[in-house]
Nucleic acid binder design. Structure first.
Lengths: 156, 156
DNA sequence: CATGAAAGCCATGGTAA
DNA sequence: TTACCATGGCTTTCATG
């Protein structure tokens, strides 16, 4: 099982701040959370060591780089065998337009979010790439009309 | 319409690198993309000014902070009137456990991803919060068994 | 034992040529 | 593009509650 370190109020404030602005300096962070810069630094190190605080990433506006269309796609697998699943998951990992994928309970095996330029682009992905995969028995695609909310911040 | 600035190969390499590691120094970035540090700096400024490169965020492991369960939830609205929709979207924005929400084509009005601690936690969210909202006519919830892939990086 | 204050070092960003 | 300089943040030390 995963070790869930107990977080106090200051830890939570640090995480909340860093989830919104990862480029804040330790000193600015310090006064925002009500602690000293050194204390912040030590806590951040501990949170990183515990695997709670992971990477730092910069975000790109999808629409601005021609990836403004989101498609949510349900997948049904041909086989539920372990090797078929892991082959499929490796495939998913290799495809950069698939940005999220969940193994699902219920009638579908996977749900993935795919970012594409337009409908034609998705058609290409679906026909030539996804349905071309040996493990995939079927897919149901649902186009997003708009992205109402997107955050990387996990509530604490 | 959105102004899609044309990106050259170096821009794309910069964005790709920053989407994976937002804490890389300009100098390390420079040699990774094959340009000078000063050139990198100027390009980054321009990409920020154009709104292509947006925030810097630090990521938190959901499982480590007791938010290890993902639920994908389809919503049907009671009304499609503009004010009902915007009220609902404001509600979505206010709920931190809803990390993503898409306005959808097809039989459902919205699809959202909700991060919760466990099934009981989701039950509380569904019954007391989501279905308590005046605009919501119905919901269909699908639990993720595991998160196979999650990336914030948009392909370029 | 963790915190807060203080100081030095170093790397970084920013600017010049 | 290259080189430099100065700023300021990171990191350690030490005293304190």
């Amino acid at each position: 099982m995963k070790q869930e370190r107990q977080l106090d109020e200051v830890d939570r404030r640090i995480l909340s701040a860093l989830q919104v602005d990862g480029s804040i300096s330790h000193q600015d962070l310090a006064e925002r959370v009500g602690a000293s810069s050194a204390s912040c630094w030590r806590r951040i190190k501990a949170l990183e060591a515990a695997g709670i605080l992971t990477g730092t990433v910069r975000l790109v506006d999808p629409a601005q780089v021609g990836r403004g269309v989101n498609v949510l796609c349900n997948i049904r697998m041909r086989s539920h065998a372990l090797d078929a699943r892991s082959a499929f998951e490796r495939f998913v990992d290799d495809r950069p337009e698939i940005v999220e994928c969940f193994s699902m309970s219920g009638e579908w095996d996977y749900l993935m979010r795919v970012v594409v330029a337009d409908v034609a682009d998705y058609n290409r992905f679906l026909m030539q790439i996804l349905l071309g995969h040996a493990s995939v028995a079927g897919a149901a695609s649902h186009f997003a009309l708009s992205m109402t909310k997107y955050t990387t911040a996990i509530p604490l």
